[in-house]
Simulated assay, not measured.
Amino acid sequence: MLFAASLVLTGCGAGASSDSAERADSKAGARADGAAADADRGAVDGSAAGADEEAADGSSGAGKPGARVPAPQHVIRTASLSVEVADVTKALATARRVTAGAGGRVENETTERVDDAYVTSQVVLRVPQERYDSVLAELAGTGKLIARKADAKDVTDQVVDVESRIATQRASVARVRALMQRAERLADVVTLEGELSRRQADLESLLAQQASLKDRTTLATITLELMERAKPSAEPKEGRPGFGDALSGGWNALVGAVAWIGIVLAALAPWLAVALVVFVVWRRLLRPRLAARAARRPAPVPVPRGEGDAAAGERNAAGVTRAAGPAEAPEK
């Protein structure tokens, strides 16, 4: 029985060894086909593609023969605007009012003050597709347009594919549920429950994709950035300086000079410290030693003035005698 159930799940018919098993399999196949047909009809009725096809068939039968209504397009529209305004708060209130009037909503907002000078704000808006162009034009007119970017992506094929897979998956889930109602053995019930859980999870994933596509194709996304104009700085008034200004300027100059002197002294402090150490070493160690060495050196003996002159006369006389001796020799 478990083997037969697995074959029915994969779409292949299987026969049993007995006539009663064959009759049971044929009845099960008929019930499964009926449940699949009901599920397919329910899926087609619930899907947008099936509804469009039925509407096209009905209109072709009532109107001109052979005429078909073209399938609707599914487009994802996104845009980003950068606008410079005089007051961000007022411009933001205007953007909210325009969005609410178009039937949209504010999805995200970030407002901050930069350097206490001006305010910037970034807001994400979701508006219906049919009001996309008008809302975009009104938002761009709130101030000076700095930048604008728009994008449109056609996802019609993806939407149709997801809807077709949902219809097929619903029919598959209906078949498994029909087999579970006829299952008699516990092993068959456990196998069918696991298969049903897997197919149900796939169906829920497809439904989530369909909901996401429907949301993005129904509502367009607009990212609006608002920034304030830079305010001009106040120019100082020209005029004669007063007594207070002169006093303040002199005091500031004095404080600046003292500060610079302190900076110079701080820079010279290491050099002054080394010079002080060298002076102390010279004064305490080197100078006393030099003085002691000079004291131990013998002083020269003084010569009397008269004795010095006599000795000099004797030296001179001896020199004259030695000089005249050779000159008198030829006379002899």
Rank of each mutant, 00 (worst) to 15 (best):
L2M: 12
F3T: 11
A4V: 00
T10G: 15
G13Y: 09
A14K: 04
A14R: 13
S18W: 01
D19V: 15
S20T: 13
A21Q: 15
A21R: 08
R23W: 05
R23Q: 15
D25M: 07
S26G: 10
K27M: 08
A28C: 11
G29H: 06
R31I: 00
R31W: 02
R31M: 05
R31N: 04
A32S: 11
D33G: 03
A36S: 09
D38V: 00
D40A: 03
D45G: 02
D45C: 04
S47C: 05
A48V: 05
D57V: 05
G58N: 06
S60T: 07
G61F: 09
P65T: 06
P65R: 02
A67S: 04
V69R: 07
P70G: 10
A79T: 08
S80C: 03
L81S: 04
V83K: 03
E84G: 03
E84A: 14
V85R: 02
A86V: 14
A86Q: 11
A91C: 10
A91W: 04
T94I: 12
A95P: 05
R97Y: 03
A102Y: 06
E107C: 11
E109C: 10
A117Y: 08
T120P: 07
S121M: 03
L125M: 12
L125I: 07
A137G: 10
L139V: 01
T142D: 11
K144W: 05
K149S: 11
A150W: 00
A150Y: 01
A150V: 09
K153Y: 06
D154Y: 07
T156G: 12
Q158Y: 04
V162Y: 00
E163P: 02
S164C: 02
A167L: 01
R175K: 14
M180Y: 00
Q181K: 13
R182W: 02
A183Q: 08
E184S: 07
R185Y: 08
D188T: 14
V189T: 11
L192H: 01
G194L: 09
S197Q: 15
A201N: 14
L203I: 02
L206G: 04
A211M: 01
L213K: 06
K214I: 03
D215G: 12
R216E: 15
L219M: 14
A220E: 02
A220H: 01
I222H: 03
L226W: 02
A230I: 08
K231R: 13
K231A: 13
G242L: 01
F243T: 11
S248E: 15
S248R: 14
G249V: 03
W251F: 04
W251I: 09
V255L: 09
G256C: 03
I261E: 15
I261N: 15
L265A: 13
L272W: 11
L272P: 04
V274I: 10
V278S: 09
F279M: 10
R284H: 02
R284Y: 05
L285C: 06
L286E: 09
L286W: 03
A294V: 05
R296H: 11
P298S: 10
P300K: 06
G306Y: 09
G308E: 14
A311L: 10
E314T: 07
R315M: 10
R315H: 13
N316L: 14
A317N: 15
T321K: 08
A324D: 09
G325P: 01
A329T: 01
